[in-house]
Simulated assay, not measured.
Amino acid sequence: MEDSASLKFEDWPNAVAFVPYVGSRYLEGFGGRRVLLLGESHYREDGWTDDPALTRPFTRKTFGDMETCERKGGGKFFDELDRLLTSKGTPALSDAAQAWERVAFCNLSQRFVGTAAGHRPSGSDFKDGGKVLVYAILPILKPEVILVLGRTAWRMFAHGDRAHQPVFHARHVNSEGRRRRYLEERHVWSLDYGNGMAWMTWVYHPSWNVDRWEDRAAALRHLLGCPHDWPVA
């Protein structure tokens, strides 16, 4: 990989339905590491199909202006990712833009999931997407850190091994009183994808009011603090 940010759509394998967003300075690293944010899925508009002409550029069109100060869109999900990357509750747009220059983003599912927030990917969507991620996307991006944005995606992503690294503790989890107990401990896993390895952990989906932004930011920095020497099988 010489310059993943300039890869053309046709340079990605056909199995990659949604070509990842890659910041213009991704190869320089974020906190010294190449960082991939791994989401769950994209939503479709009524009438949209999974035609590659629509899907292939979709992620880059959606996230393409994140590294500029002239964004065309937004919403809670994007705002929370700005906080995650900057470790600031109210980040300046310029700070967020500079952070987005240094990371990559893709979703695990390689299919549109539906038309509304309540629509969820199927187990096969996650399973198939996991194979594409490991065998087609990661060997190109070569991330060293992967933060999974959603517990469901983490549970359905059947790759990697639990590492002998300190557990991340999310200290601000919204437990909703006694009605439901959300997990505070997040194990770190190592993922060998052939021509590289990455440290991984997860946070609850940024659109949910479970983890606070402080925990999501701390999870990323926990991974960035993992050693550079990889575990040996």
Rank of each mutant, 00 (worst) to 15 (best):
M1R: 04
E2W: 05
A5G: 06
L7P: 01
F9N: 10
E10T: 12
D11E: 15
N14A: 14
F18W: 06
Y21T: 05
Y21R: 01
G23T: 07
S24M: 06
S24Y: 00
E28S: 09
F30W: 13
G32P: 04
R34W: 13
L38E: 04
G39Y: 00
E40N: 10
S41H: 06
S41V: 04
H42V: 09
E45Q: 12
D46P: 12
T49A: 10
P52C: 06
L54P: 00
P57T: 09
T59L: 04
F63K: 07
M66S: 01
T68H: 10
T68W: 10
C69E: 15
E70Q: 13
R71C: 05
G73R: 14
G73A: 14
G74C: 08
G75K: 02
F78P: 01
L81T: 01
L81M: 11
D82P: 05
R83L: 07
T86L: 10
K88Q: 15
K88F: 09
T90W: 10
A92Q: 13
A92D: 12
L93D: 13
D95H: 11
A99L: 07
W100I: 01
V103H: 02
F105M: 12
N107Q: 08
N107F: 06
S109D: 02
R111H: 14
F112I: 07
V113S: 10
V113H: 10
G114L: 04
A117S: 14
R120L: 14
F126I: 09
K127F: 10
K127I: 01
K127S: 11
G129D: 09
K131M: 02
L133W: 09
A136H: 13
A136Y: 02
I137M: 14
L138G: 08
L138T: 07
P143K: 11
P143Q: 07
L147E: 08
L149E: 14
L149M: 15
R151E: 15
T152Y: 14
T152H: 11
A153F: 03
W154M: 08
R155D: 15
A158D: 15
H159D: 09
H159G: 03
G160T: 05
R162K: 15
H164Y: 05
V167R: 12
H169R: 12
A170I: 10
H172I: 02
H172D: 14
N174L: 14
N174H: 15
S175R: 11
G177S: 13
G177V: 09
R180W: 13
R181S: 13
R181L: 12
L183E: 15
L183N: 12
E184F: 00
H187N: 08
H187Q: 11
S190L: 00
L191V: 06
L191C: 09
G194T: 07
N195V: 02
M197T: 09
A198V: 03
W199Q: 00
W199G: 06
W202K: 04
V203M: 00
Y204A: 03
W208K: 06
V210R: 02
R212C: 02
R212F: 11
R212W: 13
W213T: 06
D215F: 11
R216H: 11
A218T: 03
A219T: 05
L224V: 03
G225Q: 09
H228W: 00
H228P: 00
V232D: 07
